[in-house]
Protein backbone atom coordinates (compact mmCIF):
# COMPACT_ATOMS: atom_id res chain seq x y z
CA UNK A 1 0.00 0.00 0.00
CA UNK A 2 2.95 2.29 0.73
CA UNK A 3 4.04 1.83 -2.86
CA UNK A 4 0.57 2.66 -4.12
CA UNK A 5 0.44 5.81 -2.04
CA UNK A 6 3.79 6.86 -3.50
CA UNK A 7 2.53 6.05 -6.98
CA UNK A 8 -0.41 8.39 -6.48
CA UNK A 9 1.90 11.06 -5.11
CA UNK A 10 4.25 10.81 -8.10
CA UNK A 11 1.41 11.08 -10.59
CA UNK A 12 0.15 14.17 -8.80
CA UNK A 13 3.50 16.01 -8.88
CA UNK A 14 3.92 18.55 -11.66
CA UNK A 15 7.36 19.58 -12.91
CA UNK A 16 9.43 21.94 -10.76
CA UNK A 17 10.81 25.32 -11.81
CA UNK A 18 13.34 27.86 -10.68
CA UNK A 19 14.01 30.05 -7.64
CA UNK A 20 17.27 31.21 -5.99
CA UNK A 21 19.89 33.05 -8.02
CA UNK A 22 22.09 30.74 -10.08
CA UNK A 23 24.02 31.57 -13.20
CA UNK A 24 21.71 30.87 -16.12
CA UNK A 25 24.15 31.99 -18.81
CA UNK A 26 27.13 34.18 -19.36
CA UNK A 27 28.72 36.23 -22.10
CA UNK A 28 31.47 35.30 -22.86
CA UNK A 29 29.99 31.81 -22.48
CA UNK A 30 31.16 29.46 -19.74
CA UNK A 31 34.27 27.60 -20.90
CA UNK A 32 34.46 29.48 -24.22
CA UNK A 33 37.56 30.23 -26.27
CA UNK A 34 37.50 33.67 -27.85
CA UNK A 35 39.43 34.94 -30.85
CA UNK A 36 38.83 38.59 -29.78
CA UNK A 37 39.03 39.84 -26.17
CA UNK A 38 35.51 40.65 -24.85
CA UNK A 39 34.63 44.25 -23.89
CA UNK A 40 31.99 43.38 -21.33
CA UNK A 41 31.00 40.60 -18.97
CA UNK A 42 27.27 39.81 -18.82
CA UNK A 43 25.99 37.33 -16.25
CA UNK A 44 22.34 36.32 -16.38
CA UNK A 45 20.91 34.74 -13.24
CA UNK A 46 17.80 32.69 -12.55
CA UNK A 47 16.47 35.30 -10.11
CA UNK A 48 16.30 39.03 -9.67
CA UNK A 49 19.55 40.45 -8.21
CA UNK A 50 20.50 43.11 -5.63
CA UNK A 51 23.43 44.92 -7.36
CA UNK A 52 24.44 46.65 -4.10
CA UNK A 53 25.39 43.32 -2.52
CA UNK A 54 26.71 41.52 -5.61
CA UNK A 55 30.29 41.38 -6.85
CA UNK A 56 32.08 40.06 -9.93
CA UNK A 57 35.80 39.30 -9.78
CA UNK A 58 38.08 38.46 -12.69
CA UNK A 59 41.31 36.57 -12.14
CA UNK A 60 44.06 36.00 -14.70
CA UNK A 61 45.77 32.61 -15.07
CA UNK A 62 48.60 33.69 -12.69
CA UNK A 63 46.02 34.43 -9.99
CA UNK A 64 46.27 38.22 -10.31
CA UNK A 65 42.96 40.10 -9.97
CA UNK A 66 41.97 42.18 -13.00
CA UNK A 67 40.58 45.50 -11.67
CA UNK A 68 36.91 45.93 -12.63
CA UNK A 69 34.30 48.61 -11.91
CA UNK A 70 31.15 48.03 -9.86
CA UNK A 71 28.75 45.73 -11.72
CA UNK A 72 25.43 47.30 -12.71
CA UNK A 73 22.03 45.89 -13.44
CA UNK A 74 20.63 45.62 -16.97
CA UNK A 75 17.05 46.60 -17.75
CA UNK A 76 16.20 42.99 -16.97
CA UNK A 77 17.09 42.91 -13.27
CA UNK A 78 18.32 39.32 -13.52
CA UNK A 79 21.35 40.50 -15.51
CA UNK A 80 24.62 41.95 -14.14
CA UNK A 81 27.00 43.81 -16.47
CA UNK A 82 30.57 44.96 -15.96
CA UNK A 83 32.92 46.60 -18.48
CA UNK A 84 36.27 44.92 -19.06
CA UNK A 85 39.69 46.45 -19.72
CA UNK A 86 41.54 45.13 -22.78
CA UNK A 87 42.45 41.55 -21.85
CA UNK A 88 45.71 39.88 -22.89
CA UNK A 89 45.61 36.34 -24.29
CA UNK A 90 45.24 33.71 -21.58
CA UNK A 91 42.79 31.90 -19.35
CA UNK A 92 40.52 33.94 -17.04
CA UNK A 93 38.35 32.92 -14.11
CA UNK A 94 35.15 34.83 -13.31
CA UNK A 95 34.14 34.57 -9.65
CA UNK A 96 30.65 35.85 -8.82
CA UNK A 97 28.95 36.45 -5.49
CA UNK A 98 25.36 37.60 -5.78
CA UNK A 99 22.49 38.35 -3.42
CA UNK A 100 19.04 37.75 -4.87
CA UNK A 101 16.17 40.07 -3.96
CA UNK A 102 14.95 37.46 -1.45
CA UNK A 103 18.25 38.20 0.39
CA UNK A 104 19.86 34.82 -0.29
CA UNK A 105 23.50 34.70 -1.26
CA UNK A 106 24.91 32.37 -3.89
CA UNK A 107 28.31 32.16 -5.53
CA UNK A 108 30.13 30.41 -8.32
CA UNK A 109 32.87 30.70 -10.89
CA UNK A 110 33.64 29.81 -14.48
CA UNK A 111 36.47 30.19 -16.99
CA UNK A 112 36.97 31.54 -20.46
CA UNK A 113 40.06 31.83 -22.64
CA UNK A 114 41.25 34.63 -24.88
CA UNK A 115 43.36 33.23 -27.73
Amino acid sequence: MMRLALLAAVLAMPTPALAHAFLERASPPVGSELAQPPHQLTLTFTERIEPLFSTIELRAANGATVPLGKPHLAADDRQLLVDLPVLQAGEYTVVWHVTSVDTHKTEGSFRFTVR
Binding site: A17, L18, A19, H20, A21, E47, R48, D77, R78, S100, V101, D102, H104
Partner: peptide, 12 residues
Amino acid sequence: MLGHAGAVGGSM
Protein backbone atom coordinates in the same frame (compact mmCIF):
# COMPACT_ATOMS: atom_id res chain seq x y z
CA MET B 1 7.81 39.90 -1.63
CA LEU B 2 10.11 39.09 1.32
CA GLY B 3 10.89 35.55 0.13
CA HIS B 4 11.45 33.24 -2.83
CA ALA B 5 8.24 34.18 -4.62
CA GLY B 6 9.16 37.84 -5.04
CA ALA B 7 12.55 36.99 -6.53
CA VAL B 8 11.38 34.72 -9.32
CA GLY B 9 9.79 37.28 -11.63
CA GLY B 10 7.73 36.59 -14.73
CA SER B 11 4.38 34.84 -14.89
CA MET B 12 5.52 32.04 -12.62
